[in-house]
Nucleic acid binder design. Structure first.
Lengths: 139, 139
DNA sequence: TCTGACACTCTCCTTTTGGTGCCTATAGAA
DNA sequence: TTCTATAGGCACCAAAAGGAGAGTGTCAGA
């Protein structure tokens, strides 16, 4: 199993850093990237695009479900900023905007796949653990 | 690539559901599990335990770094509830509490590993994409 | 002529998140 | 005798997240 420090160490090696201490800047960057990217809506939108290919704004909203327009706008902007998706505006009326995964986005979707499989495999165990916890701790 | 709906479909098959529609209850459960589990502090604590084995409360705090006592307490409670870690209290004074990963926790750490590797591999590209975005959109 | 579709933006409001500081108990160290 | 370490709980407060609803501009269709 690879640890965070292994990972960061490998990054430092790649980047030419020599001392074994973790560079706070690099660690902060990785944490930031993970925090952005492990977002709930980000993963769901990535999944929607993986499944359906190129989609329009409202199509994403319908497929994902339960997301407000505000959050959808904000999330796709962030994803575009991070290079996970491309946003193509067709200058017609009514407006038409297409969203497509980039290669970076596809790689992330693939990486996150393991967590989905974990959830699929163990969600019943998580439920059982929660029930046992409630029974144990009372309430 | 496996999609969310594939995953949910597989879960429904396991559970004996017949209709092809996604059960809202199952989907909600999976989303909930993912949301809990994809939490920033959860992943960092899991990593700390993966690296160092059994740890005490303040040790986790020191290793993870930047986490308040309140968040640490809250997060380890949630993780214990979800069955990701075990919490062993030694009834001595001063208090002594040990935290250890469960098998479920180890599996999740392994599953999430792909995302860490992704971050390691592509964080420079994400940075570049952000810089390009800022240059493109201005400010 | 009126409505709706599209892809947003903006304001207002509530909920959640998370930080800080103070409190507990007691053994052992200074 | 006072201080510290330990693993928290509790109350208060600031900041951020996120939802609801209205507005926008234009054109196609009823």
């Amino acid at each position: 199993m690879r640890t965070i420090r292994d990972t960061v160490a490998a990054m430092q090696k790649q980047g030419g850093f020599s001392h074994p201490e973790v560079s706070p800047a690099v660690e902060a960057l990785v944490r930031d990237v993970i925090a952005q990217v492990a977002d709930k809506w980000t993963m769901l939108i990535l999944e929607a695009l993986e499944e359906h290919g190129t989609l329009r704004f409202t199509q994403i909203g319908r497929i994902v479900g339960g997301i407000s327009q505000k959050m959808l706008t904000k999330t796709v902007r962030q994803m575009e900023c991070d290079g996970l998706i491309t946003r193509k505006v067709h200058p017609v009326i009514p407006p038409h905007v297409d969203y497509t995964q980039t290669e970076l986005g596809r790689e992330l979707t693939a990486a996150f796949c393991g967590v989905w499989v974990w959830a699929e495999t163990y969600y019943a165990q998580v439920e059982a653990a929660r029930a046992a916890f409630r029974a144990r701790e009372g309430r």
